[in-house]
Write a protein that binds this DNA or RNA. Structure first.
Ligand SMILES: Cc1cc2nc3c(=O)[nH]c(=O)nc-3n(C[C@H](O)[C@H](O)[C@H](O)COP(=O)(O)OP(=O)(O)OC[C@H]3O[C@@H](n4cnc5c(N)ncnc54)[C@H](O)[C@@H]3O)c2cc1C
Length: 552
DNA sequence: GTTATGTTGCGCCT
DNA sequence: AGGCGCAACATAAC
């Protein structure tokens, strides 16, 4: 169970020596538990720590629906730059520095050029299992192979190696959390050896070495303060935040995920370590390890899936399933995804995206997404359910795209996995359980403080009406200086009617998935069998109202 | 075939 | 704050 991978572990890698090693940072923006950096410093006399800026990720896109680049909201761009600045500072404390390169077009071209220009003998980078990353990295490793450059690419972004888990499970990814946990066992220990010095960087030839750019230098000039979330990027912040969270041992030991308050924003109910894990400012293995330390010091502690350690296992669960599932990020060609005829509706989609549905709970969450790039897990549930199976019946891929761009913790595997979950397309199928856009938030925050903070126009709406302002008498709306239909939108759908309609459509979609989608099992061999034996039992009519079971 | 299980619904009850 | 009925999905294990 605890066996280290047989090939390419840090010790093996360290035996080979090269004059110059290049450490390519992408995620994994940290010094602690960094096997790639560790291998480089042990095996080379000169180490070049490199990050390549991708203009498509960073350049402001004026056509985008909210501030940011085409691919990332400005909150995540800021978080990345802060993380790079911190990484540079931490490398400098070890006598090194971060070499920030700018890709002209393709990131892999820039890496290959540096490998050649600096005469690199060994390339080290953290393995990344996203399809985009696999394609990018293959271009580089192909070049390295052709140039005789040794490559070391350890798994250190996740607790486990997804490929290894899939192999252990008989070639298929485990599709339930429990089977995943049973297959996975205990994660490897983080590489935490302290050292005071890194090998110096070598000659960088004619390369112009610029510091990490400022947001303003990238063209983000007149940004309002509102787009500065209260979370700063970087490894230093990550370790500080983790230690603060773990300091309260009782809180850690009693952590039980569905019990948190999604409306808490001044002091969020969960750790908000997700953006740090996303960029690798914090090692998941180190975090997991520290949680286990806390557990050892308390009498009892909660268990997966609801415990804090269990949250990290969810992360690895989605990484593993996504790695082993072709077309994981879409409905088409995705074997684990229910085929559902989602509806096309640009107007409703834009209302959702821009926080103009007329349901303050939903809109406040979408505005928190746009401005902070982070919302509580259950808040994400609320808006994802509303967009898809709960109210609007719009494709989860459209919601996924919005989250992918705007979340500061935007993560391909986790985001897609959770959208599959919430839309009842995979993993979870109880489409009758629909979040109410009114009562769900109200039970945590009856006064509506969360709404008032993110939707200032509603700040004087009496609490009796703040979750349903369209029900407020006009005199109340006037007194609150918020006229529904003018200052704040009317609801785009009626939740009662819309959710009922959604249930019906889901039932139909599921029925046709059973008929058409699964012709493998239940064929003619048992078609002659009828349920005569049930004849004496009194089956309530309601249970018969659905499609008759056709098994022929 | 049947049965147990599954992180996170709502409304209503106490 | 927690328990219950509601209505009910899929998967794994037997
Ligand atoms: C529609 C939707 C989209 C999501 N998209 C993302 C995303 O792009 N990136 C992302 O990191 N999380 C995503 N999540 C999962 C979850 O909401 C966040 O990870 C969590 O809210 C982050 O806050 P935290 O760090 O305080 O979590 P904590 O509760 O403190 O958990 C600690 C860590 O565990 C991991 N984790 C927690 N919940 C989940 C989960 N459900 N699935 C996988 N890993 C989890 C995260 O890395 C998190 O940082 C999404 C959830 C939904 C419903």
């Amino acid at each position: 169970v605890g066996d280290p991978p047989p090939l390419m572990d840090a010790a093996t890698a360290a035996t080979a020596t090269a004059a110059a090693a290049l450490v390519w940072f992408r995620k994994g923006l940290r010094v602690h538990d960094n096997p790639a950096l560790d291998a480089a410093r042990r095996s080379a006399a000169r180490v070049y720590p490199v990050f390549v800026l991708d203009p498509r990720y960073l350049r402001p896109d004026p056509a985008a629906p909210s501030p940011g680049s085409a691919r990332a909201g400005v909150a995540r761009v800021r978080f990345l730059l802060e993380s790079l600045r911190d990484l540079d500072a931490r490398l400098r404390r070890l006598g090194s520095r971060l070499l920030v390169l700018r890709a002209r077009d393709d990131v892999s071209d820039a890496v290959c050029a540096a490998l050649k220009d600096w005469n690199i003998g060994k390339l080290c980078f953290e393995s990344d299992t996203e399809p985009y990353a696999l394609a990018r990295d293959k271009r580089v490793t192909d070049f390295a192979a052709a140039s005789g450059i040794e490559v070391f690419s350890p798994v250190s972004h996740t607790l486990f190696d997804p490929a290894e888990i899939i192999e252990k499970n008989g070639g298929r990814p485990p599709l339930t959390y429990q089977s995943f946990v049973a297959t996975a066992g205990e994660p490897p220990k983080p590489v935490m050896e302290k050292y005071s010095e890194l090998p110096p960087i070598g000659d960088t030839g004619g390369y112009e070495l610029l510091p990490v750019p400022k947001l303003e230098e990238l063209g983000y000039g007149d940004l309002s303060q509102e787009y500065i979330p209260p979370f700063r990027g970087g490894e230093t912040e990550a370790l500080k935040r983790m230690r603060e969270s773990l300091q309260d041992k009782e809180w850690v030991a009693k952590f039980e995920k569905p019990k948190g308050d999604p409306s808490a924003f001044l002091k969020p109910a969960t750790t908000v370590l997700s953006p740090y894990l996303k960029f690798g400012c914090l090692s998941a293995r180190y975090f997991y390890h520290c949680i286990q330390d806390v557990y050892r010091s308390t009498k009892t502690h909660t268990k997966p899936p609801v415990s804090l350690a269990g949250q990290l296992l969810w992360r690895d669960f989605f990484y593993t399933v996504s790695f082993g599932t072709p077309n994981f990020h879409q409905m088409e060609g995705n074997k684990i995804c229910k085929q559902i005829p989602w509806r096309e509706n640009g107007e409703l989609f834009v209302a959702w995206r821009d926080g103009r549905t007329g349901y303050p709970w939903i809109d406040a969450i979408m505005i928190q997404l746009r401005k902070w790039g982070w919302m509580h897990h259950l808040a994400r549930h609320s808006v994802a359910c509303f967009l898809t199976r709960g109210d609007l019946y719009i494709h989860w891929e459209q919601g996924r795209d919005v989250f992918e761009r705007l979340l500061i913790d935007s993560d391909w595997a986790i985001n897609n996995g959770n959208w599959l979950w919430l839309s009842c397309s995979s993993f979870f199928y109880q489409y009758h359980r629909i979040y109410s856009p009114i009562s769900f938030g109200k039970k945590y925050d009856p006064n509506g403080d969360y709404i008032r903070h993110f939707i200032p126009v509603l700040k004087d709406m009496p609490k009796e009406y703040i979750y349903e302002p369209w029900t407020a008498p006009l005199s109340v709306q006037e007194k609150a200086r918020c006229i529904v239909g003018k200052d704040y939108p009317k609801p785009v759908v009626d939740h009662e009617a819309a959710s009922k309609e959604c249930r019906k459509r889901m039932e139909e979609a599921y029925a046709s998935n059973r008929l058409g989608g699964n012709p493998v099992k239940g064929n003619s061999s048992n078609s002659s069998r009828r349920k005569f034996s049930d004849g004496g039992q009194d089956v309530p009519d309601s249970s018969m109202s659905k499609q008759p079971r056709k098994r022929s």
